[in-house]
Design a protein around this nucleic acid. Sequence first.
DNA 1: GAGTGGTCTAGACCACGTA
DNA 2: ACGTGGTCTAGACCACTCG
Lengths: 241, 241
Amino acid sequence: MNDSQTPSYRPLYQQIKEALLSRIVSGDWPPGTFIPSESALSQEYGVSVGTLRKALDDLASDHVVIRYQGKGTVVATHDNDRSLFQFFHLTRLDGTRSMPISRVLLRQSRPATVEEAETLELEVEAEVVHIRRVRELEGVPALLEELVVSAARFPALEKEPETLPNTLYQLYQQRFGQSVAKAEERLFAVAAGPPEQKQLGVALGSPLLEIRRVARNLQGEPLELRISRCETQHHCYFNEL
Amino acid sequence: MNDSQTPSYRPLYQQIKEALLSRIVSGDWPPGTFIPSESALSQEYGVSVGTLRKALDDLASDHVVIRYQGKGTVVATHDNDRSLFQFFHLTRLDGTRSMPISRVLLRQSRPATVEEAETLELEVEAEVVHIRRVRELEGVPALLEELVVSAARFPALEKEPETLPNTLYQLYQQRFGQSVAKAEERLFAVAAGPPEQKQLGVALGSPLLEIRRVARNLQGEPLELRISRCETQHHCYFNEL
DNA sequence: GAGTGGTCTAGACCACGTA
DNA sequence: ACGTGGTCTAGACCACTCG
């Protein structure tokens, strides 16, 4: 994936791609705005339309921008349907999706644990915001979620309005200028403990699906560590290969 | 994904892509062979190199062919490293992969259950081959796998040499001309039963990760139903979003 | 050096959305 | 009617592999 070697040759379209990406990251083109047309950009950078096009196509396949024929190219947001479902793999048994409804149980600021600091690449005991919530699918509590972000990167997140939006990533993007661009998930099977017993109404020790996700921004820096525990009687984690 | 609408307009490169795909499916170009060069194919089909190139790039991103600069374009096989790992998402906790070692416990031909017939799109009680095996990771039994395929599509599979290869998909491809091109996986958390207790050495009722996979060929027809139950103390299911 | 895929160009036309 | 992205062309040169 990463070339630590000096590439000794770097295609023009990749340089253009980087230039465009840096303008997006810098806030020059905020999420949701239309960027200049292909021909305008190709003139600005002094390259052919085809080369600029390849750069934009690359960004589109990375979900950084979305192209609409006849309209233009827009910087991706987290309220686009496609973007919403990029990070939510829990579906009904037949593969259809449904929107979860969230209820926040805990919101606090505290020092990071060693594991959290390491994962989020923070100083030891740096301040983090910790949120715990239950998410319902089809009206049934299905998920117990713990999530942790850097308090420095998301200042006063714990003081946000009582009703956090369902899609936290939208909040990260709009309030803090941090777009979740990619994530890694590790899945485990674990036994339900007292918290899950209480919140999800499952038996102590019954099997749950644990999803540990590290969400990253456009530059690849870790933004959020999220641990979800999910009951899989009515839903499952769906993945296409 | 699917256009059930009459498209009323179909880009040339998509038609070319289909034509190339049909030649691969038909066995005209078997897996592992190099197909003609871009310029040769563009002449044959009477289109520009750019158009033919776009068709090939599409097939490459579908993992149907693999392109090597300076060498040529080869029909994908299941012994390429990349193809091997497309369907195997179990990794060590740090995300690194290791090759599993398989031991077959059972191999029999029998009528399909209702669920199997439905999933594999077979007549009720059509004959299927059923294989059960244990797979070891790092020398520790980690997976108990049940898999079922159509006996008509894989004739005499149950009489294959005693030592089935580790990568069954390679066997499907080489012996039966069936390439697994894509798959859907559904993940659940389940409690270990007596078989898992015996084969994996885990406690009765301990949580296991269940992976239900339907593997499909290039045409999208279901080839194999596979149910794996996995212990997640030393390994996990890894997914990048 | 010959052949392959990868990049880059310049320009034409098409399909789509909006006004 | 106009501007956008999508397709298609023809040709040049570059980087890589191999004999």
